[in-house]
Amino acid sequence: MSTKSKVASLVVSAALVATVPAWAHHSFSIFDAEQTKTFTGVVTRVNPDANHLQIFFAPMNAERKNVERNAEGKPVVWAVEMAGSAQSAKDGISVNAFPPGTIFSVSLHPLRNGDPAGARAGALYKCPEKTPPAAGKNCDTVTGSLTIGGDVPVPAATTN
């Protein structure tokens, strides 16, 4: 192989490696632990991945009457990621426990790259069915809400 083709194959290999999405099974350093965001949202889907369970949700607006929408009128969707499905199930977080439509509150450390996802920080607070919190509040303030997955509270400050 000539030097030229060696260089070319190196460049191609590097490009291939660089394009592999690196976060299917990843370290948690991709999340910014210095930042914590708190959301109250509506579950759209749970991906019970063996490595990292993900809950996808549509954040509710400050009035807690509807979900937030982008400029095109489409609901905004965020994801909160945590331990693998088996470990999460032990904490009470599963597909069955969070069916679509569930209203819950969660704090998360967002991704450093700005994508709408983050690593779970503390417990999840599940509102009673179809019972959102009052404007500007989270599920921990709703009578009958459930605290799931630990006892670290959602920070009092509401960022969403």
């Binding site: 999405p21 299917a24 759209t44 991906n47 996808f56 979900v67 969707v77 679509p100 709408p116 959102p132």
Partner: peptide, 18 residues
Amino acid sequence: GFTKGYDFSIPDNVNLDL
């Protein structure tokens, strides 16, 4: 294993007009 990433699509049967 490396392409399961984040799928933000909303399933058809999920109603978000609350």
